[in-house]
Design a binder for these strands. Structure first.
Lengths: 153, 153
DNA sequence: ATCAACCTTGACGCGCACGTCAATGAATGC
DNA sequence: GCATTCATTGACGTGCGCGTCAAGGTTGAT
């Protein structure tokens, strides 16, 4: 029973990370290069090790890009809110300047709300478009119904 | 009262078309080049004249691209349904092979339904995402509420 | 020690969706 | 007729988001 190679305690090497997220290794490195992913931890030899949080973040980026059609630059801005969230989770209890953290959380909150707004706007426009298309489909259907074989009778 | 130059009976030259649609002249020519826009009519000198239908189509493309994030190649496929619609509107009454038109309309209907499906899927995913973000925002708010000055006693 | 499979960092390439000249012609005001 | 403004095609340039070598180092099993 050869363990599937990595087995690094819940961490994934780039190959597996790529497979799981449906992106390529190149893309993962590229996102890191562009500051979309925080540099993941490394093995002694220098191999990247992605945490579960890293993976989630990647999937988040994938959604933002493929689903909402945002550019990586846009996404970078957006997920800086996420950064704050993780930093707070991690640094928490090494407290000190709580006031600063409050400020950061406020920024994160504002950013998140902004994202929600953007999505709402997109959904609204898409819904509008959907109605137009549905109407058009209805027109086609009636057109067809009119000159289709009245068949029986 | 110098009429604003064009004044070509409801038709727009490329400059005005660009202004109205918020795209550039280059982009309009590019879309034409790529077969997304049917070649518009021309003045005697060769200047392009865009009809109101052309403009609507451009705006449709803009929506599909910016709102839904489709590539121009995708959009080209999609709007071939629109082509059929216009052809039917125009050629109508020069009837002949009605059976053919029925087939075309059926294809257009299928394409339109497909677009509706795509939009529904996107809306669904976006809504899901929206909920996640809203939840996160809620968490931030509670976090803040907890350690914000309880103020008045 | 060696081998295959996996990884590393460059660096160049590529397709898309245009931007940006450049040279030339057309439309209109004077 | 002339100037100004708007248009034409053609060609090259550009930024993004990766793909694709190339040359080498690491890991783990045998």
């Amino acid at each position: 029973m050869t363990e599937d190679r990595p087995s690094n305690e819940g961490f994934l090497q780039i190959g597996e990370a790529a497979e799981q997220t449906g992106l390529t290794q190149r893309t993962l490195r590229y996102y890191e290069e562009k500051g979309l992913l925080r540099p993941p931890s490394r093995m002694d030899g220098g191999f990247r090790l992605y945490s579960q949080d890293d993976i989630e973040r990647v999937e988040n980026i994938r959604q933002l890009k493929e689903l909402l059609g945002f550019s990586l630059a846009d996404i970078k801005e957006m997920i800086e809110a996420e950064d704050v969230r993780i930093q707070v989770k991690a640094q928490w209890r090494k407290d000190a300047a709580i006031a600063e953290k409050v400020e950061e959380i406020k920024k994160a909150l504002a950013a998140t709300r902004h994202q929600v707004e953007l999505i709402d706007q997109k959904v609204a426009k898409m819904t509008e478009m959907r109605e137009q298309l549905a109407t058009r489909a209805g027109n086609y259907e009636r057109w067809l119904a009119e000159r289709e074989v009245p068949a029986i009778s």
